[in-house]
Structure formats: structure tokens, C-alpha cells
Nucleic acid binder design. Structure first.
Lengths: 105, 105
DNA sequence: TTAGTATATGTCAGATGTGACATATCGCAA
DNA sequence: TTGCGATATGTCACATCTGACATATACTAA
């Protein structure tokens, strides 16, 4: 993982914290987080391309603006399932989800 | 969704139950469940190809045999995140996960 | 400046997911 | 049949996720 990405994640509460903690992260954990990050980035892009505010998207998802903000920020409290659900609601196909997940962060 | 698949899901506690309930399922929900099902099937296949028992895989995942059984059975109580975690632990690459997710159930 | 809109952050009660355990069922060899 | 290893199912305490709310910050326009 790149250092810039690491820092971005630290801010989100991933306790990638010290180098020690960072090294303790297993490969799977790192892969999962990067995967999640890709989904979050894609969600933000899609929303913006759809010219929707977070508030509007929230309504579409039966959720709240604050949660949408957290989804896009890849907050610790956001599950992969929630991100997938949101992307599907925004019209993403299964194939497109696969493409997002395939690509390295 | 095919009728056979629907029945398989009913047994797993997805309350696809009556035709009415079934129709109430949104496209996204159906897509998510099928996606989950694909991951679960792949997990079982991978475990078997690795000649591991559920008990052995459970140890590998710091989990329990019963949870592994539920993962493979696509139980309601199993998250997509848990399935992805397990697949990664079994050596699946991000690209392979993408492929699983791309393919229709 | 002020006001308005969009986004970010912290918190919390209720919902959902998780490992662990007990127990049941299956498949097969002796 | 009996016994045994593997898998399935039900339950539960504890952990994590979620929507909602309050509030903060950022950016424009008047």
C-alpha cells in the first residue's frame, strides 16, 4: 500500500497508526480495505456524475446524509455490503462491481 | 431468479417465502443475494479443492466449524465481508474475486 | 458580513453479524 | 448394527453496523 493511501486511511480511523500496527495488518485485511476504498471512491464518482447531493442519494438509499458521507469517506463503520447495496441502487451492474473489485487500488 | 434457486434460498431463511414477499424483494436485494450465493459456492469449492475440512478452514479463519458451514450454506447471518475475508485467506486474488462477482448466478 | 447549500464528524439506540457451544444428521468403514 | 469423522442447525452473549440527529466546516452568492 502506498504511503499516501495509508495516511488517508489513518484519518478514517483504521488505526493503521504506527508502522508496527501497520505491519500487523494481514495481507487479507489490507486487501479488503483497499477493495472497500475502491468501492467508496466509485460510489462518490457515480453520485457526482448523477448530479446528486449526498442528501438526495441518502433518500434514494433510505439512509441519511451523514451515512452517505461516511460511505464515501470509507469510514470504519461502513460495511462492504452497504457500499455494494448503494452502488447497485445507483445502477451498477454485477459486471461493473466485478470490474471495480478486480482493479488494484 | 430461477425457481430452483429461490427454493434453495428459502431454505436458508431468506424469507423469499410467498410469491408476494418474493415480489417485494428489490432488484438490488436479489442481486446482492445472488452475488453472495456465488461467493459462498466458490468458498465451498475452494475448500474442497484444498482438501480441508470445515473444521480446518475454521481454524485458518479464527472461526468455528458451524460458521464455516453457514458461510457455505449462505446463511442469513453471514455477511459478504466475511465471505470475502475467507476467500482471500484461501488465496483468492482481487482479480479472482472480481471474476466471481461479475458472473451471474 | 450574512445566509444558504453541501459535506464532514461525533454520538447513540436499535439492528445485524460473529464465534462458540451443544446437538443433530449424514456417509461410510468395520 | 456400531462407531467415527464431517457437516448441518439452533441458540446466545458479545461485537459491529446502521440510520438518525446534532453540530461543525467549507464554499458561494448577495
Amino acid at each position: 500500500m502506498k504511503e499516501s493511501k495509508k495516511k488517508a486511511l489513518e484519518k478514517r480511523g483504521w488505526s493503521v497508526g504506527s508502522a508496527k500496527d501497520f505491519l500487523k495488518m494481514t495481507d487479507e485485511e489490507a486487501a479488503l480495505i483497499e477493495l472497500k476504498l475502491s468501492l467508496a471512491e466509485n460510489l462518490k464518482t457515480r453520485r457526482q456524475k448523477s448530479h446528486l447531493s449526498q442528501e438526495q442519494l441518502a433518500k434514494l438509499l433510505d439512509s441519511s446524509q451523514s451515512r452517505v458521507a461516511k460511505m464515501e469517506a470509507c469510514d470504519r463503520s461502513v460495511s462492504i455490503e452497504l457500499l455494494l447495496r448503494a452502488l447497485l441502487r445507483l445502477g451498477a451492474t454485477r459486471r461493473q462491481l466485478g470490474a471495480i473489485i478486480s482493479k488494484a487500488a
